[in-house]
Amino acid sequence: MPDRVLPPVRTPFRALAQTFVPEASSLDERAWAEVEAIVEDALATRPPKLRRQLATLIKLLDVLPLLRYGRRFTGLGTKHRAQFLAGVQRAPLLLLRRGVWGLRTLVFMGYYTRPDVRSAIGYRAAARGWEARR
């Protein structure tokens, strides 16, 4: 089992995750552990280089706002966090846009594949199909 990616960058990761999915702000520690376990599992099979790049990206996204707002990402309010990430998603550099896209994909995977969230958003697909609805 490779080293886990998230522990050294847990604080900025959670701040980023809460910006991607505002409802994540109300997650308790157990729910965060579930989200992070899903993300870690997804990363476990990826090449070590990609895992290192992801950790670097999270650190970079934490410090980049210093240039514009004079604060790290974790020190920004909700509005500025969203504004900053929206700007990165339109950055001229594909590498940055792609990085944020990948990170948000991982957060969505961690958040939306949990059974309680599936039912909270009203997703009801079942193997029994029509029979389960009638």
Partner: peptide
């Protein structure tokens, strides 16, 4: 599609994204 696949394929994030996800039905 399914919740994660749908979330991934929507552009953007944040409140507008969440509102759409919560409109799943």
């Amino acid at each position: 599609y399914f919740p994660f696949t749908t979330a991934k394929n929507l552009t953007g994030f944040g409140a507008a994204h969440s509102v759409l996800m919560r409109a799943f039905p």
